[in-house]
Amino acid sequence: MDSDLKKKLLREMLFARRFEERCYEAYVERKIGGFLHLYSGEEACAHGVLEAARPGQDYVITSYRDHVHAIKCGMDPKVVMAELFAKETGCCKGLGGSMHIFGVEQRFMGGYALVGGPFPLAAGIAKGIQMKGGDEICICFLGDAANNQGTFHESLNMAKLWNLPVLYVCENNLYGIGTRIDRSTAVVDQYKRVSSYNIPSAQADGQDVEVVYEAAQKAVDHVRSGKGPYFLELMTYRYRGHSMSDSNAYREKKEERMWGGRDPIIMLRDSLIEAGETSAEKFKAMDAEILEEIENEVIRFAEESPEPSMDLLHKYVMTENDPYVKGGSK
């Protein structure tokens, strides 16, 4: 990975961190409602993988922990924040919320709140790609605990059976809410679980964006070249609780400290400083710039946007004016 790319990723990941942490504050201020799941600590996963793919062209789908993936796919952070603020200018006009960010133009096919729900949807998107004949792929990011759903097994089986262009990325942060992986899952190494479907897989350090990027390049190449599905497990950690309503009391301080010492942003920053590509001062200046951008553009846009009009309540239950509802045009 060249240093320009590293610098670009450093900025993007720092932006993601600041975006998420600002969401935390906005939630405390009650500007954001519902369930809010933050991605802090896991930034290298989405950034490393999507950098190796074609964001905006490849299809991406994920869980409720979705803001950062959406932005990396090319969605405007303002529009994402406005959605979190439940405003009409939000990507889903305030009908979706934090767990349901969608940016179909950027081929971000959405965040879904049912654990394991996107597994078959991703296989289906890949089926759609196959039928239409493009060289895009579908990338599905889900957590470790999702792999205990039946949809995991059903989807891997079908993806392999029909040779679908789908890359499953497991963001293994070791927990499903408050249950540590070894207490919920018989086989702790997730990449091993897919071998029963004859799907190639790998495990990589999810805190080092360079490592993620390289592992993802291999994975993406495999899928794009028509060889069928691939499963990439990234070992990572979330710094916040599962959601804002989580006490986060179930993790040992020692464990948190250990992962805190492997912060993907700090690690990347330090390697760039060491290589003489940036300095602590430059990093600070960049941080200040990002904070200002988030405050003056992103938050302001969300704050100043109007609430959705009341007629939106009924607008998208069914698609509008479909002629076949009335028995066709004939």
Binding site: P120, A123, G124, G128
Partner: peptide, 11 residues
């Protein structure tokens, strides 16, 4: 679910 996913792309 697979069918639904494909329908997002116009299938």
């Amino acid at each position: 679910g697979l069918g639904i996913g494909s329908s997002f792309l116009g299938c």
